[in-house]
């Protein structure tokens, strides 16, 4: 199978490098520039502080800070549960919050990942019947010269 004939060799090479060139040329269209071989492409930093949106006794939406990404909430039966952001996104760079850290692949990439992480966590905390949405307050600096302050919010639950 791996001993290709003369024509198959040319066809294989053409297909392989056409696919790879397509990936390389479109890398900048992907926020994290994956499959692009763009090494050390940014020296940006990011600091994330988490909060959650919930309703107060009057039914109004309020925002409550989540120091260290930890919070407690009750489920539908009133039982209390503890939640930890770092466990819900373990294995990723997003575990490092409340301190300025290197934004791998740039600020846009980290904001993209963070938005998806907020959506993911918000959708996967069935024992939290109180939180309406998760919020991230982000302070970032793009390549040491442009400050970016933004707030991301998960899809409402």
């Amino acid at each position: 199978m791996l001993e290709l004939g003369p024509r198959a060799r040319v066809a294989f090479a053409a297909c392989f490098f056409a696919a790879e060139l397509a990936l390389l040329c479109t890398a900048s269209l992907r926020v994290d520039r994956v499959f692009g071989f763009q090494m050390f492409n940014a020296s940006s930093s990011i600091e994330i502080r988490l909060a959650r949106k919930l309703r107060n006794k009057r039914g109004r939406l309020i925002e409550r800070a989540m120091p260290q990404g930890e919070w407690t909430a009750t489920d539908a039966r009133g039982k209390r549960h503890e939640f930890r952001w770092r466990e819900l996104v373990r294995g990723t760079r997003l575990t490092r919050i409340e301190s300025s850290v290197h934004a791998k692949d740039g600020v846009r990439a980290q904001l993209y990942h963070l938005q998806r992480a907020l959506d993911h966590v918000a959708a996967n905390i069935p024992d939290d019947a109180q939180t309406v949405a998760l919020i991230a307050h982000v302070q970032a600096v793009h390549n040491g010269h442009t400050r970016i302050d933004t707030v991301l919010e998960s899809r409402p639950r």
Binding site: L24, A27, S28, R33, G36, F37, Q38, M39, F40, N41, A42, S43, N143, G144, H145
Partner: peptide, 19 residues
Amino acid sequence: SSALSKLFDPDWFGGQVMW
């Protein structure tokens, strides 16, 4: 690919990323 992405990035080419 690595070189060209740096070449066309003003922050990289200008030295800001390295700085």
